[in-house]
Write a protein that binds this DNA or RNA. Structure first.
Lengths: 345, 345
DNA sequence: CTGTTAGCGCGTTCAT
DNA sequence: ATGAACGCGCTAACAG
């Protein structure tokens, strides 16, 4: 492989001139610059990433950091990761995956001490996440996907849950629904103060009031058989509900089975909106589910560009962004029959 | 951050001695060695990955390479990626993700020319995959997940489809089933010679003969509504089938809906076995599906260890391995009623 | 505008 | 068993 030296001697200039010409770090006479670029091309010269890093103290490598998960990532994480890698690559950065074996600080410290990466994307953030203080000890830039209420002052990108809930309710109201159930995730995660659960909880309450909706929230695990029977009992416990918002991908099969077990058709008898779900999950079902999906491309674009901006020192200020979801109307929602009949008559 | 120099002067020896002590490259007197290790510890010295790489010509970074996919990876890819990263990390290697923007050779060449990685894991392999010749041009070690029939002589790790089909049929026969359908993937992928589709096709034919099973294979797309109606017509077209093997995760919702539309209960009227599916997909349904799942941990363990062995020059020979699937009995399979009744009477 | 040169931090050969 | 010195390929002061 050709080195910068080869190019230099081929053109008859010094290595620094070549370096400057290639990086545009310093003005070079037009003629020479073009000649250098041309010869570099011909010699198929590529700066060796490692050598460049050693000299410039910048590796052009980012890391995406996962905690040890209790087996099984959701359906959208794959898109997040690959999209992040792709975005980074498009900007000249590589992306490494760091999946920590355990919630072990020492392991993370080891990784950081190697100084292999220029910046870090933190995923699967939890409240009072132990990783944040560790990262702050070093001066390595990082960005958070999600929010840690206990760590104000950190830059983050998150889903706009408030907006999503508002639009969900508004959408269903537009279809004539007046009594709406909201199936949230587990009560435990609510008590733990897990961001998405808490924020949608608050938003649901707020907007039901605002839109004059008779709403009710249920917490729910995800073990399919349990969810099904729970759904069935809910149905009899509270009559008159014609629409349901679900933020719980894993509970969906149980809910749908429960509905069908009670002879409630979707969407004729019950409209279903899945929120914060992945495209894959929502279109997996029959009927395909109307959903508000995370705008993964936008989130990652924002995350990577902000992270790189920090690395390159363009602005180090706190930056926070909320990304709205995208509504995909599919086959699980329809007009409230009662309302429709009233309108017809 | 402390450098090797700091350690050397702190102990009062030369840098090379420290290097040797740390890497065990050369015998060092016991006393000094221990002192050096201790001081390094105290100074929190970590060899800078980049500097080490430049000198040793080895980066301890691997890449996992994806082609540009037509939107949406399956449910098991996420596990494959994170497991690969974790395995690598456990062996002292970082894993970067390379998702190519397009099927563009030049992009891959650029990446390779940077000499950032020591080895490559090739995923989503296709027949006559264009990436293999490109990789062979360089002398960088790589390993294939899957098989490319058109590239004999390359090391690979793949699912043991033959074994899986044998065990599936055997398992169902043990439950008394004698007439079995096999729902494969699309006919197009079969004609394209896509490995999994072709191999299961052959295995199904072979083992039906072997086990004296009345088997029939169907190719099938994945658009849910189409799959459902297809399933319904299949049911009437061929009576007497009591069990069904499916290698098509995305078609599962349609198949299940079609079955229930014809009032066939699972597993009372029809046993369902999902093969080569991910744990997530199979347990997502209600009833949860009995399945032969990819042994992702074993596959990745094999892949990474073989790749690293090649890198470290332990053996450069061709190595191929077929990994059997793991049977998970869930709720979608049961005794063939006809057989059972006969046994009872 | 351009060339010279000193590192970047570590591995490793050559001496001793 | 140990140290000095060189080199990996490139960037960025420091000089003109």
């Amino acid at each position: 492989m050709a080195t910068i030296k080869d190019v230099a001697s081929a053109v008859g200039v010094s290595v620094s001139t070549v370096s400057y010409a290639l990086n545009g770090t310093r003005p070079i006479s037009k003629a020479k610059k073009e000649l250098i670029l041309k010869t570099a091309q011909e010699l198929r010269f590529r700066p060796r990433a490692i050598a460049r890093s050693l000299a410039s103290k910048r590796t052009h490598i980012l890391a995406i950091l996962f905690p040890a998960l209790e087996r099984g990532l959701g359906l959208s994480e794959i898109d997040l990761i690959t999209q992040a890698a792709r975005d980074a690559l498009g900007r000249g950065y590589h992306m490494v995956i760091w999946t920590l074996q355990t919630d072990d600080e020492e392991e993370l410290r080891e990784l950081l001490a190697q100084e292999l990466v220029d910046g870090i994307v933190l995923m699967e953030i939890r409240n009072r996440d132990w990783r944040i203080p560790v990262l702050k000890e070093t001066d390595i830039p990082f960005i958070i996907l999600g929010r840690d209420e206990a760590a104000p002052g950190e830059s983050y990108i998150d889903v706009d849950f408030f907006d999503t809930m508002m639009r969900s309710i508004s959408y269903l109201k537009g279809l004539g629904h007046r009594q709406i159930d909201f199936i949230n995730q587990s009560e435990k995660s609510f008590r733990d103060g897990y961001g998405p659960v808490v924020r949608t909880h608050e938003a649901f309450e707020y907007f039901c009031g605002n839109f004059d909706i008779d709403g009710r929230e249920y917490f729910c695990g995800w073990e399919s058989e349990a969810v099904r029977s729970r759904t069935i009992s809910l149905l009899s416990e509270r009559q008159g509900t014609t629409a349901c918002i679900v933020m719980n991908d894993k509970a969906l099969p149980g809910i749908i089975a429960g509905l069908s077990g009670q002879r409630r058709r979707i969407p004729e008898d019950m409209s279903l909106v899945s929120i914060i779900s992945s495209a894959g999950a929502a279109s997996f079902f029959l009927p395909a589910l109307t959903s508000f999906e995370m705008d993964i491309d936008a989130m990652m674009e924002a995350a990577i560009s902000q992270l790189i901006a920090k690395i390159e020192g363009r602005y180090a200020e706190l930056s926070t962004r909320l990304i709205p979801c995208i509504l995909r109307e599919r086959d699980s929602t329809g007009m409230n029959m009662v309302t429709r009949d009233r309108m017809v008559s």
